[in-house]
Write a protein that binds this DNA or RNA. Structure first.
Length: 837
RNA sequence: GCCCCCGUGGCGGAAUUGGUAGACGCGCUCGACUCAAAAUCGAGUUCCGCAAGGAGUGCCGGUUCGACUCCGGCCGGGGGCACCA
């Protein structure tokens, strides 16, 4: 057995063996319990980065651990392969998006394989493959037929130079990120999925996801944004623009007697109608639309209004009228686009009222004494009882809410209702590199679904990226088809689907991939839900919400009897690295920083990014140290949910550890390997080994990889100090099995060198002997007044009396107590004795 | 502005339901081996102090025999949402 572990040789050897034996193929034959371990599939951007390595290493440890525990593990890999970077590459490098994408996939697949992940490559898929997106088109049509897809006019960010729609993130300071042109708001016909119809169940379903981080559940809860309140009608004193009334929404109907104005959005139909006849109002509306949409601008934006001169009638007092304003802070797409203003108890309303000299009447007071306490610069939003509110006076705010809702229902002027922040999901993208929406537009028949036997609708290959805009739109023939319904001339939908649709069901396709349909219901249900899903927290809202929605939508139309796609979710931290800048503030790579002549500033430790020039390419690191050292480093030190700082010293430390395990194994191999096994002789070491078995298992189950790593270091330390014995030989073998999920190549090599049969990947996880988990002797802390003064060793399970006696007999204790008996003695068996003097 | 999370050695971080703070790793110091270095091995490493001892988990206070852990109030860092009625 070689004195040093040679990873380059071992990595390649064992990766080949695993592949030849199809070791990591999920059998799905039902012989063993199943486990589905999944990491978020990568976008094929070009090369693997450290974030991928960390993500997939974590999933891999769990997958290998489950296998060793007797599970039939599904651990697949694929490619989220549609998206804009491919089109950008097409424009910049004059290469076809498909060619660029597939070549990246080849590179990245090879890179992933070099890390030795226990993946079932037989199930690999790419979303840009017609054999994937064709099924997605079928699912889209299923949802369409079920009424969960619809088309409507919607505003988009339009870049007039690139002639394309931009996502909000691509609009920087009101300009297109690529062209720099001023972005316009434009109305386009777009496809939407009815996610809002599932708002209630998506919210309620969060409660059952007890293996999700609280943080993510909270973020989704906020995103869904359920508000309960009253929707009610304001009658106009005189009809305005032909309208006799309009509706408002409020979560605080209790404050209705504190109303001092009504306000509608600049986009409200009444505002539009009035503006048509009022130049000043038209100018005001135009001004509102101009305002920036960045966070900073909104925060500082002044509350502005335009008094229409119209009056609305208070619903509970026909003699009371309020002025009607058009206000810049009222949003058309939330609630009804109109509000009633209660300045005393809403900060925005207060700002507005102060500016326009409107009355501010307190109607909720925390105590009777404060009933007429004037409102200053801050609205009162706390709890209390109603004041200045006629029949409501004296009731709690809570009761008043129900009371007003009941009165509204009775009087027929309003009703209790729920309003959601969540909007329907717009899935149309005016781009080439995505799943074509399988719809044909016919002048006579309108939108018609492409017949199933004509799926997939395949993207044309011969496209031109020289001109701006969507190449599908410009293609000479692709869009021209006959209407499937009437046979007349028609035109294909040239928009493609949001790539989030692709990732909303890939985990189902991994579980079951028949050629003739998206998935087999029974087969998919055997694997789903995913037992453990691992990925970045940046997907906490959109991807995870969309996938939950898609799963529930399939459930509703009877295609899949699963409610939640991901039983367990883990969001891992980023990989960070130091940054360097030169005197001019230019970012330097670590190598440049070292050789730089001028002044170099060591910057903050930040997420690896190309712009900060602090990335570390995993591949050369694997070349130098091998896959196992890299994997080990990814698991060490930092808790997996927090950021991990990459460092040269860290990888070297991991390399040292790999070699230490190897030396332990090599020693034992020379001593005779498995033939030297016998009964335990080193009782203390046996205990340590079994405690480690239990601890490593528990920590892997909890995804606390850093702690499992620490457990293994401790065992290795103990083994290096332990004299040779059968116990020790056995312990080394167990150490190798415990480390196998983390450093699989080393483990296989050591396993073989010790003369063990078969692959360690197929070996059983060692069982911890419960009898060896309990210590015979325990260390007891002796405290005086809660401060540690001494420790003593006692047999486990010693009585309170014995422990108290032993503590009082301690020299230090007698000295410190000065002969006086303690006033009180607290004994926690097997832990401590606290003497209160 | 609203909501959430986090503050522990030089650094990353450990610490069952409140019960010996600093496991494990990195770094550093000293020593062994070596002509020397690397690698490796051994000892040490919260702070103050020669020691005895004292202080110590962002700060202030509280509950408790006992607080990193629970409660209240500050300070600092990070994240999410954002004119959501």
């Amino acid at each position: 057995m070689a004195a040093r572990f040679n990873p380059l040789e071992a990595d390649a050897r064992w990766q080949k063996v695993w592949e030849e034996k199809s070791t990591f193929h999920a059998s799905g034959n039902g012989a063993r319990p199943r486990a589905y371990v999944l990491e978020m599939f990568p976008y094929p951007s070009g090369r693997i980065h450290m974030g991928h390595v960390r993500n997939y290493t974590m999933g891999d440890v769990l997958a290998r651990y489950r296998r060793m525990n007797g599970f039939d593990v599904l651990h697949p890999m694929g490619w989220d392969a549609f998206g804009m970077p491919a089109e950008n590459a097409a424009m910049e490098k004059k290469v076809h998006p498909g060619e660029w994408t597939w070549s990246n996939i080849d590179t990245m697949r090879a890179q992933l394989k070099r890390l030795g992940f226990a993946l079932d490559w037989s199930r690999e898929l790419a979303t840009c493959d017609p054999s994937y997106y064709g099924h997605e088109q079928a699912l889209f049509l299923d949802l369409y037929e079920a009424g969960l897809v619809y088309r409507k006019q919607s505003e988009v960010n339009w870049d007039p130079v690139d002639m394309t729609v931009l996502a909000n993130e691509q609009v920087i300071d009101g300009r297109g990120w690529r062209s720099g042109a001023l972005v316009e708001r434009r109305k386009l016909n777009q496809w939407f999925l009815r996610i809002t119809e599932f708002a209630d169940e998506l919210l309620d379903g969060l409660g059952a996801l007890d293996q999700w981080p609280d943080k993510v559940r909270l973020m989704q809860e906020n995103w869904i944004g359920k508000s309960q309140g009253l929707r009610f009608r304001f009658d106009l004193a005189e009809p305005v623009a032909g309208e006799a009334s309009f509706e408002v929404f409020t979560t605080r109907p209790d404050t209705i007697f504190g109303a001092s104005f009504a306000a509608i959005s600049p986009d409200h139909p009444i505002a539009t109608a009035l503006a048509a006849e009022d130049e000043a109002l038209a100018a005001f509306v135009a001004e509102c639309k101009q305002g920036g949409t960045t966070a900073a601008e909104l925060e500082t934006a002044e509350k502005k209004g335009f008094d229409t001169g119209a009056r609305v009638v208070h619903p509970l007092d026909p003699t009371w009228t309020l002025p009607l304003y058009v206000a810049n802070f009222v949003l058309m797409d939330y609630g009804t686009g109109a509000i009633f203003g209660c300045p005393a108890h809403d900060q925005r309303d207060l700002d507005f009222a102060r500016k326009y000299g409107l009355p501010v009447t307190r109607v909720v007071a925390p105590s009777p004494e404060e009933a007429n306490e004037p409102i200053g610069d801050e609205a009162y939003t706390g709890p209390g009882r109603l004041v200045n509110s006629r029949s409501l006076d004296g009731s709690t705010a809570e009761d008043a809410i129900s009371s007003v809702i009941a009165q509204a229902a009775l009087g027929g002027w309003g009703e209790g209702t729920t309003v959601w922040r969540l909007r329907d999901w717009g899935v149309s993208r005016q781009r080439y590199w995505g799943t074509p929406i399988p719809i044909v537009h016919c002048e006579a028949c309108g939108p018609v679904a492409v017949p199933r036997d004509q799926l997939p609708v395949v993207l044309p290959e011969d496209i031109d990226f020289a001109a701006p805009g969507n190449p599908l739109d410009r293609h000479p023939t692709w869009a021209k088809v006959d209407c499937p319904s009437c046979g007349g001339p028609a035109r294909r939908e040239t928009d493609t689907l949001d790539t989030f649709v692709d990732s909303s069901w890939y985990f189902i396709r991994f579980a079951s991939q028949p050629a003739d349909k998206p998935f087999d219901k029974a087969e998919a249900e055997c694997w789903l839900p995913v037992d453990q899903y691992i990925g970045g927290v940046e997907h906490a809202i959109l991807h995870l919400l969309y996938a939950r929605f898609w799963t529930r939508a399939l459930n509703r139309i009877g295609r899949l009897d699963v409610e939640e796609p991901f039983k367990g979710l883990f969001t891992q931290g980023m990989v960070t690295h130091v940054t360097f800048q030169d005197a001019e503030g230019r970012w330097l790579t670590p190598e440049e920083a070292e050789s730089h002549e001028g002044r170099v500033t060591r910057g903050r430790v930040e997420k690896m990014s190309k712009s900060k020039r602090n990335t570390v390419d995993p591949e050369p690191i694997v070349d130098q140290y091998g896959a196992d050292a890299v994997r080990w480093f990814m698991l060490s030190d930092s808790p997996p949910e927090r950021d991990l700082e990459w460092s040269e010293a860290g990888i070297q430390g991991s390399w040292r550890f790999v070699q230490r395990i190897w030396r332990l194994a090599a020693e034992e191999a020379e001593r005779g390997g498995s033939t030297w096994l016998g009964d335990g002789e080193d009782a203390a070491l046996d205990r340590k080994v079994h405690r480690t078995i239990a601890a490593v298992g528990a920590n892997i189950e909890a995804l606390a990889f850093n702690k499992a790593v620490a457990n293994l270091y401790e065992l290795a330390n103990a083994l290096e100090k332990a004299p040779a014995s059968p116990s020790r030989s056995k312990a080394v073998e167990i150490l190798i099995r415990l480390a196998a999920p983390m450093v699989p190549h080393l483990a296989e090599q050591a396993w073989a060198s010790l003369g063990r049969e078969g692959l360690i990947a197929d070996a059983e996880w060692p069982a911890a002997d419960p009898a060896l988990l309990v210590e015979e002797e325990v260390t007891i802390a002796v405290q005086i007044n809660g401060k540690l003064r001494d420790t003593l060793t006692a047999p486990k399970g010693s009585t309170r009396e014995t422990l108290e006696e032993m503590a009082l007999a301690s020299d230090k204790v007698t000295r410190l107590l000065d002969g006086k008996p303690p006033r009180k003695v607290i004994v926690i068996p097997d832990r401590l004795v606290n003497l209160v003097a």
